[in-house]
Design a protein around this nucleic acid. Structure first.
Lengths: 233, 233
DNA sequence: GCAATTTCTTGATCGAGATCAAGCCGCATC
DNA sequence: GATGCGGCTTGATCTCGATCAAGAAATTGC
């Protein structure tokens, strides 16, 4: 990658502005903010920010994959969320006392847009009509975490895997084809499981005829049946 | 309890206004909001609102204890938070799509002030300078949940109990006397443990000389030592 | 193409915490 | 003081998922 100054071109601009957080921003304010932003390339495994580090910016994922991770005693780590392309992340940190509450590491070679908090917050203060969007964003994260808490504390490995797969399914009817968003070990960590257990659950589902696995793509012949199986696990 | 119309008197007003959420409110707006609020008595075990129910109001706990609970398959339940006297709760629900994400049940006979969302939100929209307080509140909840997630997914029963007890300790030095905020079974549920396991951990701590237990009051001769014990569990 | 590394699967064992089952203590009511 | 009940403790067993240990399959490098 030798483009010395990767540029935020209009197609990237459009992708960022499509996020709910920015959809209500005026052209001028948005352009001024991106003026102060820059593109960063991340190698596989590279750490974008550490837990507890002073937070100066939030990010938009252009390509690749970023994992948000909390660290426990003895190197233990739990993936809180696997960020996908075209997602904003860490924007809620603006109001969280200036420190990142989790670590962000690239799960693949990745590209992000780094958007500094200072001008973002300044614009927000000058345009309080933009705050409801921010509140909505924080609320979504709250919802997500409450759901996670429920899954972690009250569901078995079988149920967690099944719920996760069902969440990946498009809403509609039957015979869905889905694709895991990351390598299986990362998905396992996201679910609070070891790779071994994750593999075994997938095996169980395969033997029960509820799932066909090929590499990272999964075929679910009957999501309803999967739901029932989860409920009775 | 035969006071037919329990009244929100000035001492109660003062208690509510001391919360960060309302400290910046004008006298007039605040008085108008309380005009539309009312006091409710709850029996032990009474459910204030259900998970998924349409959210019309949030609450301030005057007396007693309220537990926020998520329900899992098969009657399993996890206490997300034990609300204490003088706490606001469910206020974040205002931005959460109109449904309560958890259930609230009285852990003791309790008294709450029920504050309806409609006038609250109307005032907020008319006075956007009050929104930063709301953002700060949501951020605190986010922080809390991220911490909970870490505890649940990466710590042993020993560590969870120890962290919890240390959180209850006043900041300072040594030989602390603390009091459990609820009956032990509720604390256990809050920690994602069975009462039996909680009791056993307390027993372990007692035998290790790190804790003296008397009913609900606990004496911790050396918090530092407790911290060390947790880290090496 | 073949070796080397990484990813995934499968099997055997282990352990923390849940569950099941008594028993104990404090406290109320009569 | 007996009786009953709720809250807590203690003990025995069971279960799920982690851990340890190989091996198979896919990817990468030369």
């Amino acid at each position: 990658m030798m483009s010395a100054h990767p540029v935020i071109d209009s197609s990237i601009r459009a992708r960022i502005q499509r996020t709910p957080l920015f959809s209500a921003w005026s052209e001028g304010a948005f352009a001024a903010l991106l003026e102060q932003s820059r593109i960063r390339q991340l190698d596989l495994g590279e750490i974008l920010f550490h837990e507890g580090e002073e937070a100066r910016a939030f990010y938009f994922l252009l390509a690749g994959e970023v994992d948000l991770i909390t660290l426990g005693a003895g190197g233990r780590e739990k993936i809180v969320e696997i960020i996908q392309v075209d997602d904003l992340f860490a924007e809620a940190v603006a109001f969280l006392g200036g420190r990142y509450p989790v670590q962000a590491a690239a799960g693949l070679a990745s590209t992000v847009v780094e958007i500094p908090f200072a001008p973002f917050m300044a614009t927000l203060q000058g345009h309080q009509e933009l705050m409801p969007q921010m509140l909505a964003r924080l609320s979504m994260r709250l919802h997500y975490l409450i759901k996670e808490l429920r899954h972690l504390s009250m569901e078995s490995a079988n149920q967690r895997v099944a719920s996760y797969l069902l969440d990946l399914c498009p809403a509609g009817g039957e015979s869905v084809e889905i694709c895991l968003p990351a390598k299986k070990a990362a998905v396992a960590a996201r679910l609070g499981l070891t790779p071994e257990t994750f593999s075994r659950v997938l095996g169980r589902l395969r033997k029960a005829g509820l799932l066909r696995v090929d590499k990272r793509s999964l075929h679910i012949p009957d999501p309803q049946a999967l739901r029932r199986w989860a409920d009775s696990s």
